[in-house]
């Protein structure tokens, strides 16, 4: 079983300031979601509400069809893993892993297998770990929680590239083995893009876009070919990003090319590919834009 998530008219205020405003969001059970947003956009606040780390100022949050706040059968099967983890720093790594038993579904054997795989020093205290190893410990506790809804909030920070790659692969393997709902909040967008089914973009405390990855990729295109031809075809289109290598140029545009443009591109030897999620995200959340 995996959990769905429903937020209805949810607002969260810090003092007089809205961290989130009028959020309506539905996450279907059993999918992998990407949560994107600039710094301070409200990603962590949104995840904190879903995991009942905080109470919304107004609105309703249902997880698995039930209110999540103070609902032990639900929150015991929801895992929000924040960067660096919420640990007692004076505990050893082993004791921290054992604390996972508080959760009903916690799989200690799996946790120790992962700890071995990621070379976590079991006898070291958490405060003695490097930032990277601390992130790994957080990821291990999140994966071994075997929760019905697992959310990772920038948990990869501090991990080196091979460790991040191993973490993503382990996450996917665990998902394939036991389908559940996963939310990945990250700034390393292109790194996770291939794992995501749907993407939610949060901007200034509101849900800016919530679409399937393919829908996002269809919102623009990347034109690659001889520089002069690419410039000619892209003329008049909104350019999100461009790269040049010798005589070859690649331009990302903010709209899917229409049929005549595609024909002209093909005639000029230009390849048309999907837009990069990161380029599109930057475009959509540019200050002054409203995401339209």
């Amino acid at each position: 079983m995996s959990f769905s998530v429903n937020l209805r008219d949810v607002t969260l205020k810090y003092g007089k300031e809205d961290a989130l405003a009028d959020v309506d969001l539905t996450l279907e059970a059993g999918k992998i979601y990407g949560l994107l947003g600039r710094n301070g956009a409200g990603k962590t606040s949104l995840l904190s509400l879903i995991a009942a780390f905080r109470k919304p100022t107004t609105g309703q949050i249902l997880v698995g069809g039930e209110p999540v706040w103070e609902n032990a059968p639900i929150v015991s099967r929801v895992a929000l893993i924040r960067e660096g983890g919420d640990f007692d720093d004076s505990d050893t790594v082993k004791a921290t892993i054992e604390t996972g038993h508080v959760r009903l579904g916690f799989d200690a054997d799996y946790a120790y297998k992962l700890a071995d795989k990621f070379e976590l020093p079991l006898t070291k205290r958490v405060r003695e770990l490097s930032r990277g190893k601390r992130s790994v410990l957080a990821a291990v506790t999140g994966l071994a929680a075997r929760a019905e809804l697992t959310m990772f909030d920038e948990v990869h920070l501090g991990m080196d590239a091979p460790t991040r790659d191993a973490f993503y692969k382990e996450l996917l393997a665990e998902y394939m083995d036991r389908p559940h709902t996963v939310v990945l909040s990250t700034h390393l967008i292109d790194e996770v893009a291939n794992y995501l089914e749907e993407v939610i973009i949060v901007d200034r405390g509101r849900i800016l876009r919530h679409e399937e990855v393919e829908a996002f990729q269809g919102m623009g295109a990347t034109l690659t070919g001889p520089a002069e031809s690419v410039d000619a075809v892209a003329s008049g289109l909104e350019v999100l990003a461009e790269q040049r290598l010798g005589a070859t140029k690649s331009i990302t545009v903010a709209a899917a090319p229409d049929a005549p443009t595609r024909e002209r591109a093909a005639a000029a030897g230009i390849e048309i590919g999907p837009v990069g999620l990161q380029d599109l995200f930057i475009h959509l959340t540019e200050p002054g834009k409203n995401g339209a």
């Binding site: 780390f53 929801v78 924040r82 919420d86 004076s90 604390t99 508080v102």
Partner: peptide
């Protein structure tokens, strides 16, 4: 002081 964040993050309710 230590238990509030670590246990609530581990899925324990405040009432528990």
């Amino acid at each position: 002081y230590v238990l509030v964040p670590s246990l609530i993050a581990a899925g324990v309710t405040r009432r528990e």
